[in-house]
Nucleic acid binder design. Structure first.
Length: 232
DNA sequence: ATGCATGAGTG
DNA sequence: ACTCATGCATA
């Protein structure tokens, strides 16, 4: 080995050439070794339509938590809570989707419903650290409420869910395995390709530029999830 | 359970 | 044009 004019589009083919041997070291995760810029610098909470978590838990919870916030931000504690949460949720015979909808009925300020996806991700720790911390007190509140009501109350026959119908469903793009492998190889050497490079990659893989751009964005987010971030 | 997507907020 | 929280659609 002893050649690599990998500038610009030359590196646009980490799979079909021997350059992969040097450019895409397979194995575990990508080798991006950056880590500064903590999370806290952002405004932390935003929201839009459905969900609406207002602020980080800086005053609620127990007085103990207020004394040492580290208890709430400790990945270990979050992990333990997530597991307990799931276990007790199942014990209550409630689905992830049920929990999401029930959150709206909690009437907590700035807290609306969440999707099954989000509840699932909370339980499996596949959310960012900050996201986990923001959701914990809310889910904890729901859990306590639900268990309290389970003691003296019983379910009431709520209205059967009716699908609105008539709405054109969104179609989910599916990236084929070979293309996916190429993208992963590119990502390994350059997690944040420029717009031009994205265009070139899209061209090469015969995918829409936007699809490729979003793929990289999602890939970056993945790296930051608790499960992937080696912070526990 | 997870892939691809949206939109608010930020720069 | 990115990050981040979140969700629809689907495996």
């Amino acid at each position: 080995m002893g050649h690599h004019g990998m500038e610009g589009l030359d590196m646009l083919d980490p799979l079909s050439s021997s350059s992969m041997t040097t450019l895409a070291p397979m194995g575990e995760a990508a080798p991006p070794h950056h880590q500064l810029h903590g999370y806290g610098m952002n405004h932390v909470m935003n929201h839009h339509h459905a969900g609406a978590l207002a602020h980080p838990p800086s005053h609620l919870a127990h007085p103990a938590a207020a004394l040492h916030p580290d208890t709430d931000t400790d990945p270990r504690e979050l992990e333990a809570f997530a597991e307990r949460f799931k276990q007790r949720r199942i014990k209550l015979g409630v689905t992830q989707a049920d929990v999401g909808k029930a959150l709206a009925n909690l009437k907590l300020p700035g807290v609306g419903a969440l999707s099954q996806s989000t509840i699932c991700r909370f339980e499996s720790l596949t959310l960012s650290h900050n996201n986990m911390i923001a959701l914990k007190p809310i889910l904890q509140a729901w859990l306590e409420e639900a268990e309290a009501q389970a003691k003296n109350k019983r379910r009431d026959p709520d209205a059967p869910s009716v699908l609105p119908a008539g709405e054109k469903k969104r179609k989910r793009t599916s990236i084929a395995a070979p293309e996916k492998r190429s993208l992963e190889a590119y990502f390994a050497v350059q997690p944040r390709p420029s717009g031009e490079k994205i265009t070139a990659i899209a061209e090469k893989l015969d995918l829409k530029k936007n699809v490729v751009r979003v793929w990289f964005c999602n890939q970056r987010q993945k790296q930051k999830r608790m499960k992937f971030a080696a912070q526990h």
